[in-house]
Design a protein around this nucleic acid. Structure first.
Lengths: 357, 357
DNA sequence: ATGAAAGCGCTAACAA
DNA sequence: TTGTTAGCGCTTTCAT
């Protein structure tokens, strides 16, 4: 059906090796080069990467396993990575495992059968069992957003504790003392870190944490709605709420609207991610912004480094670490990067006492 | 490195054909079956789909080419499709072409080299030049959302004209006569259709369309912001605006907030897509909702039908067409499906005159 | 039911 | 520089 190198060989009278050489940057006489190019044109030849992959044991394909494709944090990272990887000839197979450990394991097995060259994973199973088999292949794994104790590999993380501290301290600075939090599932790495930041900020300001002010959501919109409803019901004295991911932030805004609560005079709110959504809220939301674009870049770069080693044209960059990224290497040579978040100021935080402008 | 069928053959003392037979549902003696399964277990064997793909000329991989992965309409469809396709053993390679015709063409070429079994495309190039080469392979193409004159293939569309008519007529019914529209790029199929619906509704109600009420956006958030700013500036008498996709709807809401316009008493608004966002708006947005989930299902089903023919277990379903889907076949056997949208009522439309409740 | 062998389209080692 | 050939891991006749 489709033309093969053999067809080109026949048409040009050249040998297979010459054609292969042409495609792989070898030396081919100018005259033959022309002939080959003509044949390619006429036969509509396209390299068969499947055959090439079988031979070279490299499919030029990266598997990405994430909890939910419609969590904006995931979507944004995938957009960035896919772009870079494809520009380097790599395809990306994205598997959405619906926040299900079993599906996550199946996704990795699926990708193993597809013989992907590497896996990028924002893990659901914090024990990492799903990755053990792939790790045996010796191919690179990069973890996003969540570390796993038992899996030694490269990681790109966000400084979640600091992020939460920034948010809660901003509330303290504005005179708030009774601050609710809509946290994530307690078995999720980032949720633990963000919760830790909430506690740390309280400790620093000598304010005791009340249990009633803590709600554990599930990182979904509906979870955010329920969270705000619960917190408001349980805490009449509460003056502010910090929501710890985008989906729940949207849910909290929905809840606030449906409860008829007016921001910020009746309640202050700090959300997470998605600048545009914050702008669309009235009043504009104050929030913690994660550098998804940067995460995507870092992950893609590390993956390409692992795959192409010194061949990668970005190798030089590896040296220049921007100030907002902390990079270090584990004893077994893996890279751990931690990126900083940023507070984006809106109008959703009320100033209760004499406070900074 | 990784175990192969040969390894299993050696370990079990069986021939290659028997092992292959085992994997492909052939008859294998119970005793040998056991032996094979033991060997698989011990060797951590996983089928090499690359080799299989080379032999069978089918990669069990579908390419998806879309304008922007972060257009929620695209994201939602991809989530639905990927799920179904993976459950049938197919991987999905998504290529985001950034609404760029050249990148779109490159994406298709990239997928051709990867020898995908089929392509699903929401086209940017309305001339369809990017698909010509792939079409020659005889492999299936399914177009989403936008038809292309020159490319005869299966299409899953939305009744955009009706969608726009529904929205504009709702405004008429509420007494509005000066209705602005933030449309899409005039070379995009859906944008043309939605604009046509706007005109048709005006015609039906005997209201002349004013040029100043029409703004052509670019389907981005920023485009929506600019759109609402422009329309408000140009039309002091305008009482309502219809926005024709989600991103611009969010933009319009941002613009309305930043201009300090109060919904719905100062201006009525009807948006597009994303129910959750509508709920998060205050007042809750009235909007046109597209059946993305259903689109995803239809596209995946048609693709699997084309690929597996009568082997597909869904074949029976092909007969039962839900009432809100109009299906027909072109003379050359291609399927054209058109799905209906739904109006979701919020509180963003003011009733100006005596009107229906 | 099982085995032997050819071949999918490519790369790479070797020879010329 | 170019041609010949083996083989990547699998499926698939064709024998047995």
């Amino acid at each position: 059906m489709a033309a093969t190198m053999k067809d080109i060989a026949r048409r040009t009278g050249l040998g297979l090796a010459t054609i292969s050489s042409y495609f792989n940057g070898g030396n081919v006489r100018e005259k033959n080069r022309k002939k080959i190019e003509e044949a390619i044109e006429e036969l509509h030849y396209e390299v068969n990467e499947v055959a090439r992959g079988l031979k070279t044991n490299a499919t030029k394909t990266i598997g990405v396993v994430i909890p939910e494709l419609d969590m904006i944090f995931c979507t944004e990272i995938i957009i960035g990575m896919e772009d870079i990887l494809r520009n380097h000839g790599y395809a990306t197979i994205v598997c959405d495992c619906r926040t299900d450990k079993l599906l996550e394991k199946e996704a990795v097995e699926f990708l193993m059968r597809k013989r992907v060259d590497g896996i990028i994973n924002m893990p659901v199973d914090s024990a990492g069992n799903h990755l053990k088999a792939f790790q045996r292949t010796g191919k690179p794994i990069i973890l996003i957003d969540r570390m796993i104790q038992d899996i030694s590999c490269d990681c790109v993380l966000v400084d979640n504790e600091q992020a939460a501290m920034d948010a809660v301290e901003l509330l303290f600075a504005n005179g708030h003392r009774s601050i609710g939090i809509i946290g994530g599932p307690s078995d999720v790495f980032t949720a633990q870190e963000r919760m830790a930041g909430y506690f740390k900020a309280h400790q620093k300001h000598g304010v005791a944490v009340e249990n009633a002010l803590i709600y554990h959501g599930d990182y979904t919109i509906q979870g955010g709605v329920r969270g705000i409803e619960e917190l408001v019901k349980r805490n009449p004295q509460m003056t502010a709420v910090f929501v710890t991911n985008y989906e729940m932030t949207m849910g909290a805004v929905i809840g606030v609207n449906e409860l008829g609560i007016h921001l910020p005079d009746e309640l202050s709110l700090i959300g997470f991610d998605n600048l545009q959504f914050a702008r669309a809220c009235n009043p504009k939301l104050t929030l913690v912004s994660q550098p998804t674009d940067r995460i995507a870049k870092e992950v893609a770069r590390i993956m390409l480094d692992r795959l192409e080693g010194s061949r990668s044209d970005e190798q030089q960059e590896s040296g220049n670490v921007p100030g907002n990224i902390r990079r270090h290497r584990t004893s077994d040579g893996h890279i751990i990067e931690k990126l900083q978040t940023e507070m984006i100021l809106g109008k959703s935080v009320a100033c209760l006492a004499k406070c900074m402008p």
